[in-house]
């Protein structure tokens, strides 16, 4: 393997990691509050509100229904507005974040649903305000599950980021496609696959460790 190719693969790995983690971060910044709103709006919860739940749920479903490759193209005007360009790694991060956010919202909602209702009831009996319920009860109690959801999201994003190639974002997926699939260079294609597998395994390994460290339920 020539030095140029190794350099190319290193750069691709960097781009994939960048896209995965930055869009992972943004998808949580957007998705986590939406998930919390969904949960708190459910019947019997502190801020129960049927129409709010339905409205938020509707938008989450709409965005989850759009295939990612179409979302990239569909969002080009918005992407241009946010990062000033529709090509490159930065441009791919926008649709990746928006694409993953509703997925994160549903994951978070489900994590919160796993909390025994008695805990919420006890907190209410002590005069807990809604915001305190979120920060002191819901998030800490669901943290091991939320970390698992983050792991799941990041691994999904590794795969999605390969599609970033469609907007010239580079990354390992793009290299694998361009050199391996189109140019049929088996060595490059297989190296790319090994690198992707390593990334996925590492994320899963670290995620499991972190989740376990937050879990005191035994």
């Amino acid at each position: 393997m020539s030095e140029a190719i190794i350099w190319l693969l290193a750069k691709g790995t960097g781009e994939t990691l960048l896209m995965t983690f930055v869009s992972g971060l943004f998808s949580f910044l957007i998705g986590l509050p939406i998930g919390v709103i969904l949960f708190m709006s459910r019947p019997n919860q502190m801020l129960a509100n049927k129409s709010r739940y339905r409205l938020v749920s509707f938008f989450v479903n709409v965005f989850r229904a759009i295939p990612f490759i179409i979302l990239i193209v569909w969002m080009i005007p918005f992407t241009r507005m946010i990062v000033g360009t529709s090509i490159g790694v930065e441009a791919a991060i926008v649709p990746l974040s928006i694409g993953a956010a509703p997925f994160v919202a549903r994951l978070v909602e489900n994590c919160l649903l796993e909390i025994p209702y008695g805990l919420i009831e006890a907190a209410r009996s002590m005069g807990t305000r809604p915001i305190q319920l979120v920060t002191k009860v819901l998030i800490p109690e669901a943290l091991p599950a939320i970390v698992n959801s983050a792991t799941l999201t990041l691994i999904t994003l590794v795969g999605y980021s390969a599609m970033g190639g469609a907007v010239g974002a580079g990354g390992l997926g793009h290299i694998g496609y361009q050199y391996g699939y189109v140019g049929y260079d088996a060595l490059i294609m297989n190296t790319v696959l090994v690198l992707l597998v390593l990334i996925v395994f590492s994320i899963q390994f670290i995620g499991d460790r972190v989740s376990k460290s937050f879990d005191h339920r035994k």
Partner: peptide, 19 residues
């Protein structure tokens, strides 16, 4: 919420925060 601080409550299944 303030009035509830004057009324403590305990439960059959304890409902302690695991975290």
């Amino acid at each position: 919420l303030d009035a509830r601080k004057n009324i403590g409550m305990i439960f059959q299944h304890f409902n302690l925060l695991s975290s």
